[in-house]
């Protein structure tokens, strides 16, 4: 492999890893606060992409009901992105309200909430399929995707946008979690969930905030993904979601750094496997690496084993 292809693959891996990282974030945030694997999160990503699609096409005036004025594509992209993040955050919070909270209130085994999450994911996927039909949708091109070439390496606006957006999100989240009151409450809950409500911290608010944050990141990933790979289908969130979850686990679930490290790591593994081996082996190798990794270090890169007291 010469230097050009190496750099090219690195760039692709960064982009691919960005999607994983953004989605993994939702898993990790929710897990940190609730110790819940929100298996529906991959489908929240899909919901985000679809909401983005409908918003974008609406803003482009493709429906009977349209805006009285037309906007330049760049503005549409930004508006779509922001509105999608807000709407998807609502979707995520609704999910928490409708499906998880009643169970939590009843104080049932944590496992039942996990199963409910898995089922919610299926409902989102198949509900979408039932409502919108099986035909794939093409995300409108909003950014003129200029491709630059530097030596043998080509990169596009979108690719750079994805990578930079992810890095920005990382910095933003680290700040939120370390500096804001809500962020500190989130960390406190994951540290000791018995004491936190006794200290007068409104746990439900923190949970809602966590879901909103995680879902909006998934929405960001969804819109960016749809911009880079403009084909939408109801099951698009399933496999990507599972893999993002794996990324979160590899990084050490519950850790924001972990979600990013794991996401990029998985992106690198997949892209470089695909560079050397037939692409059909990609999943096989990626999952095998995960298996070996978790067998050796079950808590992930940044995760800390909690001591059992007897």
């Amino acid at each position: 492999m010469n230097i050009d292809t190496l750099v090219q693959n690195l760039l692709n891996a960064l982009q691919w890893g960005s999607f994983y990282a953004l989605i993994a974030l939702g898993y990790t945030l929710v897990y940190g606060v609730l110790l819940l694997i929100n298996f529906a999160h991959g489908d929240i990503f899909m919901v985000g992409a679809y909401i983005g699609f409908f918003l974008a096409t609406f803003l482009l005036g493709q429906y009977a009901l349209a805006l009285p004025f037309s906007l330049p594509p760049h503005v549409i992209f930004l508006v779509t992105l922001l509105l999608t993040m807000i709407l998807t955050a609502f979707a995520g919070v609704t999910l928490e309200r409708v499906a998880y909270r009643p169970l939590r209130r009843k104080g049932v085994n944590r496992l039942y909430v996990v199963i409910t999450a898995l089922m919610c994911g299926l409902i989102l996927e198949n509900g979408n399929l039932a409502l919108l039909g099986a035909n794939r949708r093409n995300f409108p091109q909003l950014l003129d995707n200029t491709v630059y070439s530097l030596g043998g390496v080509t990169f596009s606006d979108v690719k750079l946008l994805v990578i930079f957006a992810t890095i920005a999100v990382f910095l933003l989240l680290e700040t939120i979690v370390r500096k804001t009151k809500l962020g500190m409450a989130m960390r406190a809950i994951s540290y000791d969930r018995m004491a936190v409500p006794l200290m007068g911290i409104p746990v439900d608010t923190v949970i809602v905030f966590t879901f909103a944050l995680g879902s909006s990141m998934a929405a960001l990933a969804g819109v960016l993904f749809a911009t880079a790979y403009p084909v939408l289908e109801p099951y698009m969130g399933a496999l990507v979601g599972w893999k993002a979850f794996i990324a979160a686990v590899i990084g050490g679930i519950g850790e924001i750094r972990g979600a990013f490290a794991g996401g990029f790591l998985l992106g690198f593994v997949e892209i470089f496997v695909a560079a050397f081996f037939p692409s059909t082996l990609r999943d096989l190798i990626a999952f095998s690496i995960l298996l070996v990794f978790l067998s050796i270090k079950p808590t992930g890169i940044f995760g800390v084993a909690r001591a059992t007291k007897i």
Partner: peptide, 28 residues
């Protein structure tokens, strides 16, 4: 064997991974 060291959520992922590994191994 991984279940000796870990359980619960992490083990869930391992079983999931085995499912995918088997499926993609057969596909290949």
């Amino acid at each position: 064997i991984p279940s000796f060291k870990t359980r619960g959520d992490y083990l869930a992922i391992i079983t999931l991974a085995v499912n995918y590994i088997v499926k993609s191994a057969i596909e290949n």
